[in-house]
Design a protein around this nucleic acid. Sequence first.
DNA 1: AAAAAATATGACAGGTGTGTCATGTTTTTA
DNA 2: TAAAAACATGACACACCTGTCATATTTTTT
Lengths: 225, 225
Amino acid sequence: MTRLSHSRERMEKVPTQTFFNLPEEKRERIIRAAIDEFADNSFHQASIAKIIEQAGISRGSFYQYFSDIKDLYKFIFEKSGQEKMVYIYDVVSKMNELNTFVIMKELYKAGIRFANDHPKLALLGNKLYKEDISVRNEVMAGLEEKSYQFYEDLLQKGIEKGDVDPGVDITIASRLFLTMNLAVVENFLTNSKHDHFLDDIEGYLQEVDKMLYILEHGLKKKDYE
Amino acid sequence: MTRLSHSRERMEKVPTQTFFNLPEEKRERIIRAAIDEFADNSFHQASIAKIIEQAGISRGSFYQYFSDIKDLYKFIFEKSGQEKMVYIYDVVSKMNELNTFVIMKELYKAGIRFANDHPKLALLGNKLYKEDISVRNEVMAGLEEKSYQFYEDLLQKGIEKGDVDPGVDITIASRLFLTMNLAVVENFLTNSKHDHFLDDIEGYLQEVDKMLYILEHGLKKKDYE
DNA sequence: AAAAAATATGACAGGTGTGTCATGTTTTTA
DNA sequence: TAAAAACATGACACACCTGTCATATTTTTT
C-alpha cells in the first residue's frame, strides 16, 4: 500500500496516468487510430494531426496523454508485442522438447497466424524493422537485441541437441532467421491483400515449408552421381 | 541523323535536356547533393529544399531540370545501378562456366566492394528496397522484378548444371538470395561506420563465407549417428 | 457549496516543405 | 545588333505539421 502510493512519483509515466483513467471507449478509439496510422505510414510520415482527427480528440488532450508521437509509438509497439506473445507462447514453452526445425516451423506459423488475425499490428511491426537504426533504438528500446538473443539460444540448444550443424555461425544464422521471418510475414501480408483472399492460410503455409526446407538443407544438390 | 533529330520530341526528357546542357561542375554539384540527401533520408524525408541548399542552386532552377523529387531520385538510382554494373559485370559474364555457388559468392563480394567504394550509393539503394511497394514501383520502375529474374535464372542454370538441388523452389530461393544480399550489404555498411574502420574488407568477406555456407548446406547437422 | 484538482479545447506562433510565376540575365540565332 | 530562345532567381501562396498556453469545463475533495 505504501508501495503503491509511493509509485505515484514525480516521474511521469509514459502514457500518462490520465490516459489510463480515460473511459475505455475513448482510450480504445485513440489506440485504434494510432494503429491505423502506424500501419499505413512510416514513423516519420505518421502524424499526431491525423491520429487526433481520426480519434476525435483535441490536440491539447493528446499532449495530456503522450509527450510526443514517439511515446505513442512505443506504447503501441509494446501492446503489439504482448499480443504476439499469445501466439508464440505455446511454441516457446516446448522449446526444449521438440526438434529445432519443428520449433522453427512453428515459430514461422505462429508469426503468420498473428499476421492473419492482426494484420495491422504485423504491418506496423514489420515497418518498424525497416526503419533506421536510430528510430528502432528509440522505439524498440533493446527489444531487437532480445529477438536475436532468442534465436541464438534456439540455435545453440539445437547444436547441443544434435539437430543443428555445429559448423554454422550462430550469430549469422540468427540474423538470417529473423530476416527471413520478416520476409515471410511481409510476403504474406502483401499477398493476402492483393491476390485472392486466402481465407484458409494453410495454402500459404506450404510456401513457408519450402522456405524452411532451404534453411534446413541448403541449396546444394545432395547425393551426387 | 533524321533519327536523332526526331528524338527531340515534345515529350520532355526526365532530367530535362537543360540539365545535361549544364556545365559539368554544376551538374555534379547537384548529383552529389542528391546522393547525400538520399543516402541520409528516406524517400519521404528527403527534400528539394535541402538539396538545392547544399547544391547552391535556386528553387526555380531545380524545376527546370526535374519535374519533382521523384524524377531526381529515379535518375540517381539509375546512375547507381550503372555504377554497380561495373562491379558485377565480370561475374555475370562468367555465369555459364563457373559453379553456381562460386558465382553467388562472387556476387556477394562484388556487392561488398561496391558498398566499400560507394557507400552512399549502396546506402541509398538499400534504403530504397525498404520503402513501401508503391514508392519502389514508382522509382525503380520494374527493376526489382529484373533482379528476381536474374537470380531465378542463376538458380535454374544451377539446377541444370547439377549444382543446385532440384527440390528447391526457385522463386522462394531467389527472394531469399536477394534479401540476404541486402542484409549482407546493410551489415557491412553499419559495421564499417561504427566499429573499427576495416581498411581491408577481406576480414568482412569471411562473414560472407559463413553466410553462404548456410545458404549452401543449410542449418541441419550432416552425417548422422 | 466552495475550493481544488483533473481534464478538455482550439487558437496560435513557428517550423518546414512544395510548385509556380513574373521578372531578370545570358546565350544563340537570324 | 535586334529578336528569340534558353536559363536563373526568389518571393509568394498554400499546405501540413508541432508544441504550448490561456481558458473553459468537469469531477473530486473538503
